[in-house]
Structure formats: structure tokens, C-alpha cells
Amino acid sequence: MRLVARILSIVVGALALGFVVYKVIGPVGHWYEINFAQNDDDLGRAYMVALAVQLAALIVGGWLGDWLFRKWRQKRHLP
């Protein structure tokens, strides 16, 4: 049961942070497209940066979910 809860906390953390970053990247990408992008190469580069940021957010979110789970487990076992 503990393994399932830990995996669930990792997945929830990754999805939560990934969703927040996704909601922020959209308007930032649109702003970049309107104000700075001059050709398709700029848009392709911006898309690749957005994918890299999204992947990093998923990894960090999973780590944060695991960290919160470990803190929660420690707090439950204290007298």
C-alpha cells in the first residue's frame, strides 16, 4: 500500500507542476510568437525550448511529490 501511495504522490506531483507550467508556457509562447519570432526557425526553436521546460517540470514535479510523501511519512512516525 505504501508503494502505491508513493507512486501516486509522484504522479500527482508531476502532473500538477506540469499543468501549472503548461498554463504559463502557452501565453509566454504566444507573446514570443507575436513580438519576436521572425520565421519558422524561431518558432521551431521556441517549441523545442517549451518541450524541454515541460519535461523538466514533470521531473521536478515528480521529485517534489516524492519529497512531500517522504516528509508526510516521517511526520506520521514521530511520537
Rank of each mutant, 00 (worst) to 15 (best):
16 A>C: 06
22 Y>M: 05
40 D>H: 10
43 L>T: 05
35 N>F: 04
47 Y>R: 13
53 V>S: 10
11 V>H: 04
38 Q>F: 07
37 A>D: 05
71 K>E: 14
37 A>R: 07
13 G>K: 02
75 K>F: 15
31 W>M: 09
71 K>Q: 15
32 Y>V: 06
29 G>S: 11
9 S>A: 15
22 Y>I: 00
26 G>E: 13
71 K>N: 13
10 I>N: 07
5 A>V: 14
57 A>P: 04
26 G>A: 13
7 I>A: 10
48 M>G: 07
2 R>L: 10
29 G>N: 10
3 L>N: 13
77 H>C: 10
39 N>I: 03
77 H>P: 00
50 A>C: 03
35 N>T: 03
38 Q>P: 01
51 L>V: 14
21 V>D: 00
15 L>C: 09
19 F>W: 12
75 K>E: 14
24 V>S: 02
58 L>N: 13
77 H>W: 11
74 Q>I: 02
42 D>Y: 06
69 F>K: 03
18 G>M: 01
23 K>Y: 08
25 I>L: 12
40 D>Q: 14
36 F>T: 09
35 N>P: 00
18 G>R: 04
24 V>W: 00
60 V>L: 12
40 D>F: 10
28 V>L: 11
29 G>I: 01
40 D>M: 11
74 Q>H: 10
44 G>L: 05
33 E>R: 06
75 K>V: 14
69 F>W: 12
39 N>K: 09
70 R>L: 14
55 L>T: 13
64 L>N: 04
47 Y>K: 13
42 D>P: 00
19 F>G: 11
20 V>K: 00
77 H>S: 15
18 G>S: 05
63 W>R: 04
53 V>L: 14
41 D>F: 03
55 L>R: 10
44 G>T: 03
13 G>D: 05
18 G>W: 03
73 R>E: 10
63 W>G: 08
3 L>R: 12
32 Y>P: 00
35 N>V: 00
4 V>Q: 09
1 M>C: 12
50 A>R: 05
72 W>S: 06
33 E>Q: 06
4 V>A: 15
10 I>W: 02
5 A>I: 12
29 G>C: 05
57 A>T: 01
51 L>G: 09
68 L>M: 15
2 R>A: 12
16 A>S: 13
36 F>M: 11
5 A>K: 15
17 L>M: 03
15 L>R: 07
18 G>V: 04
33 E>L: 00
21 V>C: 01
34 I>C: 08
37 A>V: 04
